[in-house]
Design a protein around this nucleic acid. Structure first.
Length: 467
RNA sequence: GCGCCUCUAGCUCAAUGGCAGAGCAACGGACUCUUAAUCCGCAGGUUGGGGGUUCGAAUCCCCCGGGGCGCACCA
């Protein structure tokens, strides 16, 4: 291993140099001495001259070496693609007009022992791209831009929510009872306590306990884990934003979510009228609001609701090619019918509201119809992006809902919830009227980065281990 | 979990039953304004792994493994 320095003092980066000296004329030289560092992307040795393209986190700048001016010119001309170097010299523009650092001294900062692939075609093998993200990021500018956009998005979200008076909090990832969503959990074991714990499938219940505790506007951005299949839209660990606001209801959160998403689109894409997958998508508020019943009627041509006779719902679901189970009530049947006939065709943005209470065990019953919940999903680009509701605050009703879930669980539904006594006790201390919202950060990034695969927006997506 | 497709040099790809190849990278050399520099030279392989059919297999068949897409499940 070649000995390399422990530190290197930089005075400029590529973007800074372009900002400062971009206007130089071809062949013009300055007395501005800078030191830069980065990875060598291309080398063009030419006798007693040599040019190298240096990339740092901010962009690219050319290194220009001359045997007359450059220390160890021969070594410089032999740099390999991928080597990291630090270089110092004056800023000039070559006769051909390329902004360059005319290298006086340089030092190898890391040797690239492995070559990074074809300098023109890069690395396109999907497996390499995701197993060796460091190679992908080096080779593919688009990959770097997507992760950059993700970082900026999360930062903007935090700033915006803090501006609205929300408090960022952290709640446990290890849960004694998986709750807050219906999904199969990952199980782990704590040795000292000799007890199984579950990686959280949602932070929801803990966040509402913080509201009970008096934090009236809270949010958490964090990883949740669901032990389910992988797909272009599903990774076993993904990032959720959940936020809760006391004294607000689900209508307030429709406004909040459309404002939030369109703000992010404007900040990150320059417009709220974006395209996704080649298809136009106008995120400008207000988004369409429609009930599940209305949308199912639109899609199927016949009215359907939680009050439609169960036999008719069963028949229509079966006709649509859906599975029908005997223990499903009208709410579950309507939801299945909606998912089978309606959801896939929605492009959005649209808020689908008035979910059946039967399939919304943590949502408050609708003020006009107790069979419905004050719950909506925000469908954007054909996918569920947001799920929100007026929170169920009544501990007795919550206990009954948990018990119905536990019964479904006992009947074999592995995703149904269990009775969470800690949460019920918290509700007994009093949860004020509260609105809650969950938003999939990965999907939001996919939307604004216009990527079709969730793996593009996760630095290290879950892969089967190599053997 | 099931179905279809796919895996050849470090990277990007050829070779469809008959001698495993090219470009780039790497390595050696020439070149004082290059931009995927150019030019000359050299080297690089258990064709994902194992088995089978065949005179002969990267190519056909079977098993295993990785990956992609679809379905199922879900956000």
């Amino acid at each position: 291993m070649t000995e390399v320095p422990y530190r290197f003092e930089r005075s400029a980066d590529a973007a800074g140099l372009r900002a400062r000296h971009g206007e130089l004329g071809a062949g013009e030289e300055t007395d501005d001495r800078v030191s830069v560092a980065g990875r060598v992307m291309l080398v063009r040795p030419q006798g007693r001259l040599a040019f190298a393209t240096l990339r740092d986190a901010s962009g690219e700048v050319q290194l220009f070496a001359r045997s007359a001016d450059t220390e160890d010119f021969e070594g410089f001309a032999k740099l390999s693609l991928g080597d990291w170097v630090g270089a110092a010299g004056r800023v000039v523009k070559t006769r051909k007009g390329e902004l360059s650092v005319l290298v006086e001294s340089w030092t190898l900062l890391a040797e690239a022992r492995r070559s990074f692939g074809d300098k023109w075609k890069g690395v396109t093998d999907v497996e390499t791209r995701f197993r060796q993200r460091e190679v992908d990021l080096w080779a593919n500018d688009a990959s770097r831009r997507v992760l950059l956009l993700r970082s900026r998005l999360v930062s903007l979200l935090r700033r915006h929510l803090e501006g609205l008076g929300f408090l960022e909090v952290e709640t446990p990832m290890l849960h004694p009872i998986p709750g807050g969503a219906t999904a199969r959990p990952f199980v782990t074991h704590h040795n000292a306590l000799d007890t199984d714990l579950y990686l959280r499938i949602a932070p929801e219940l803990y966040l509402k306990r913080l509201v009970v505790g008096g934090f009236d506007k809270v949010f958490e951005i964090g990883r949740v884990f669901r032990n389910e299949g992988l797909s272009p839209r599903h990774n076993p660990e993904f990032t959720m934003l959940e936020l809760y606001e006391a004294y607000a209801d689900f209508g307030d959160f429709m406004s909040l979510s459309e404002t939030l998403v369109s703000m992010l689109a404007v900040e990150l894409c320059g417009t709220s009228a974006i395209t996704y997958g080649g298809r136009a998508l106008d995120l400008t508020p207000p988004w369409r609001r429609a009930t599940m019943a209305e949308l199912v009627e639109e899609a199927t041509g016949a009215p359907a609701s939680v009050h439609t006779p169960v036999e008719e719902l069963r028949r229509r679901l079966a006709d649509a090619g859906g599975e029908v189970r005997d223990d499903w009530g009208p709410g579950k049947l309507l939801l299945e019918l909606y998912e089978k006939t309606t959801e896939a065709a929605l492009w959005g943005p649209v808020f689908v509201s008035e979910f059946p209470a039967e399939v919304s065990p943590l949502a408050r019953r609708h003020r006009r119809d107790p069979e419905l919940a004050e719950r909506f999903e925000g469908i954007v680009a054909g996918r569920e992006l947001v799920n929100a509701f007026s929170e169920l605050v009544d501990p007795d009703d919550q206990r009954r809902r948990f018990e119905a879930q536990a019964a479904a669980r006992a009947a074999g539904d592995e995703e149904a919830m269990a009775v969470d006594e800690d949460y019920l006790r918290a509700l007994e201390y009093g949860l004020p009227p509260t609105a809650g919202l969950g938003l999939g950060i990965d999907r939001l990034v996919m939307l604004l980065a216009d990527t079709a695969n969730i793996r593009e927006v996760i630095a290290f997506p879950t892969l089967r281990p190599e053997r």
